[in-house]
């Protein structure tokens, strides 16, 4: 390769760092949404690179459904300690207790959709004017149309048909009082890029991503973890399986993959040969063809 030519990972990194710095320059009170999943971990890593040797000049916010895996909470708290980050927790349980949202009932119930209210309330309470997140355009078809800088009206809603054109690397973050932005620094990364970057940069990720033994059951062809907050039908048999997670979200709607991949190299080989997208195991996307678009319009991440 030419001496003055970047690899694709370096070029993606340069683009993302530029966007994160642009957010800090253009907004007064930004926040990074942090789920503890690999994409938000990579965003946080990029933010540390962008401002080194200074600390990351914005807090992390975890919109916590209360239905996450124990490993995830441990990982999150460890990362906050090691990197000197500031963490804000926006609790879905609190929104339920305060009667702002109503918990879904039934066997497929999930708190995933409830996150939107908690998120929008937290943005308003903390007066955040830009919420950054680790969404990628390759994840889902509605996200393929998302801008790097995505304008939200004063109800936090997204108007996909009326987005600002985004040219070159000139990002327009101008807004009226009460409106906010979402910014997506890793829009152009694919699942594969994320894994390769984690390997290249030796970034720590939760143990859930690596193959391990866990009590699981199968529903609609998706392997789900048995936890204290998942209800199972009598015919759904609990078995101890060798699994790992390709995405980590709320435990009630994130499917596991049967896998022996216990190292980053093996995960990359598995992703290379996989014929199913990572969101193929997300029950929340399967609710309808436009499930993601509808949630996004309301202000979901």
């Amino acid at each position: 390769m030419n001496k003055y030519h970047l690899t694709h990972l370096k070029e993606l990194e340069a683009e993302s760092i530029f966007i994160i710095r642009e957010v800090v320059a253009q907004f007064e009170n930004p926040v990074l949404l942090f789920s503890g999943g690999k994409d938000s971990i990579v965003c946080h890593h990029l933010a540390r690179k962008a401002f080194y040797p200074a600390n990351v000049p914005f807090p992390l916010m975890h919109v916590d459904t209360g239905h996450n895996f124990d490993e995830l909470y441990k990982f999150r708290d460890q990362l906050v300690k090691e990197t000197n980050a500031k963490l804000i927790i926006a609790s879905v349980q609190k929104s339920i207790d305060e009667g702002k949202v109503k918990e879904e009932k039934g066997i497929n119930s999930s708190r995933n959709k409830l996150q939107t209210t908690t998120l929008l309330d937290a943005i308003e309470n903390h007066q955040f004017d830009c919420a950054m997140g680790g969404a990628r355009r390759d994840e889902e078809k509605a996200r393929a149309k998302e801008r790097f800088f995505s304008h939200r009206d004063d109800f936090g809603q997204w108007d996909p048909k009326n987005q600002r054109p985004e040219l070159w690397n000139l990002f327009n973050g101008k807004k009226n009082f009460g409106e906010h932005f979402r910014a997506f620094p890793i829009s152009n990364w694919t699942e594969m890029d994320i894994w390769q970057y984690i390997l290249q940069e030796k970034i720590k990720i939760p143990s859930l991503y690596f193959s391990h033994k866990r009590d699981c059951f199968t529903r609609n062809g998706v392997v789900m973890a048995k936890t204290s907050f998942t209800e199972t039908k009598p015919e759904e048999e609990i078995t101890n399986m060798q699994v790992r997670f390709r995405t980590i979200g709320d435990a009630t709607c994130t499917g596991a993959t049967i896998s022996n991949a216990d190292s980053l190299e093996k995960i990359i080989d598995e992703v290379t040969s996989s014929r199913i997208t990572e969101r193929g195991g997300r029950a929340d996307d399967k609710r309808s063809e436009a499930a993601m678009e509808d949630r996004k319009k309301e202000g979901y991440f």
Binding site: L6, T7, E11, Q196, D269
Partner: peptide, 10 residues
């Protein structure tokens, strides 16, 4: 595969 990928460009 894992290493080859690190030499790709965009």
């Amino acid at each position: 595969m894992s290493n080859q990928y690190l030499n790709m460009d965009l």
